[in-house]
Design a protein around this nucleic acid. Structure first.
Length: 132
DNA sequence: GCGATTTGACCCCCC
DNA sequence: AGGGGGGTCAAATCG
């Protein structure tokens, strides 16, 4: 990853680990595409750290794995969505052990609302351009 | 300097 | 008991 930050490789799919296949991407810097319809993750008030993303070939959907920022908290969150579809399926695992979140953002307390969401899922796989 | 995010590979569980 | 697939960790990079 030398040029940009968010670029997904279609090679990672299901457990069938990688099979020799490398593509050279030497694009000057064709990024910053004005995506109009980005999917945002519904903020539940807790801060999550993404620790993995994989394409589940079983259902042909992309699954993202999020974990609670707190180590004492064994809460985990999984986000599943189909490529080219705005529907998101959020699955929670475990429960939070620390008190309630300080409102939107977990840390930006005084912040009643506004920009609580930040994960642009669709932009992660198709660069914001739905093929189907 | 820290925190977050991303990607590849490895591990573990389930069937 | 083994394999496949899903799940997790770790390293690197960017802000």
């Amino acid at each position: 990853m030398a040029s940009s930050s968010h670029l997904i490789t279609p090679g990672s799919g299901g457990g069938g680990q990688g099979h020799g296949d490398e593509q050279d991407q030497q694009a000057p810097s064709p990024e910053e595409a004005g995506a109009g319809e980005q999917l945002v993750m519904p903020e539940d008030g807790y801060q999550w750290k993404k620790y993995g993303q994989k394409f589940i070939k079983n259902i042909q959907k992309i699954r993202s794995y999020f974990r609670c920022r707190d180590k004492r908290c064994g809460a985990k969150k999984k986000v599943e969505w189909h490529p080219g579809d705005p529907s998101l399926r959020i699955v929670y695992d475990g429960a939070h052990q620390h008190g309630s979140p300080s409102s939107t953002g977990g840390q930006g307390e005084g912040n009643g609302e506004g920009v609580g969401n930040r994960y642009e899922l669709s932009a992660q796989y198709f660069g914001g351009a739905p093929a189907q």
